[in-house]
Structure formats: C-alpha cells, structure tokens
C-alpha cells in the first residue's frame, strides 16, 4: 500500500508540475488542481497509513488513526476548492479582456498589445 500511495502522490505531482508549466491558462488551472490532489493525498499519509481504525481512542478497537491530518486535509480541500473557482474565473476574465488564453495575455510571436 505504501508503494501505491507514494507513486500516486508522485504521479499526481509530476502531472501537476508539467501542466503548470504549459503556456495556456486552462492546462495551468488543471495543473493546480492536480497539485492540490497530490498534496491532499500526501497529507493523509502523514498520519501514517492505517486501515479500518477509528480516529478516536476506543478501548474496543485494536488501535486508532491520527485524526489531525484529516482535519488538515479538510482545511486544505476547502481552500483549494475556493482557489480553483477563483482562478477559473480569473483566467476567463483575462481571456475575455486580453483576447488570448496565453498566460502572457498575447499569442506567442504576436506583437504586444498591452
């Protein structure tokens, strides 16, 4: 399971970094989403990988799983959800105002119209 989780985080991060470096705004937005997925899975793993245990100390259960990373992940999800919405709207407005969805606001090779 360690291998599965670790490679999932690694692949998500690699995809996210690659997409963030693209020249159009839409892949960049997707890249940011992938990065936030990667960090959410990573944060879950920081409380150690435990399966089928309650997040509180229960004498009947054989052990417990660390509840704090789950709280951290919730905070991170809320923030990244809101930020994704903001960045989508921002990309759309920039496209409508500048007439190009390139991150520089103009097509590569075109003369600047700023």
């Amino acid at each position: 399971m360690e291998f599965l989780v670790a490679s999932a985080v690694g692949v998500l991060t690699a995809v996210g970094v690659y997409l963030c470096l693209r020249g159009r705004t839409f892949p960049v937005v997707l890249g940011l989403s992938f990065l936030s997925y990667a960090v959410n899975v990573f944060l879950f793993a920081t409380g150690r990988l435990v399966v089928g245990r309650p997040p509180i100390i229960d004498p009947a259960a054989p052990g417990y799983t660390d509840p704090l990373p789950q709280a951290l992940v919730l905070t991170a999800i809320v923030i990244s959800f809101g930020m994704t919405a903001l960045v989508v709207v921002l990309a759309l407005r920039a496209f409508l105002e500048a007439g190009s969805d390139h991150v520089d606001g103009r097509e590569p090779g075109a003369e600047g119209r700023r």
Binding site: L90, A91, A98, V103, G105
Partner: peptide
C-alpha cells in the same frame, strides 16, 4: 487587461 493577465500569474 494588464492587471487580469498579471493577476493570473500572481495567483
């Protein structure tokens, strides 16, 4: 437009 394009990079 300038602020929106720069704003996207800043964000």
């Amino acid at each position: 437009a300038a602020r929106l394009v720069t704003g996207f990079k800043y964000v």
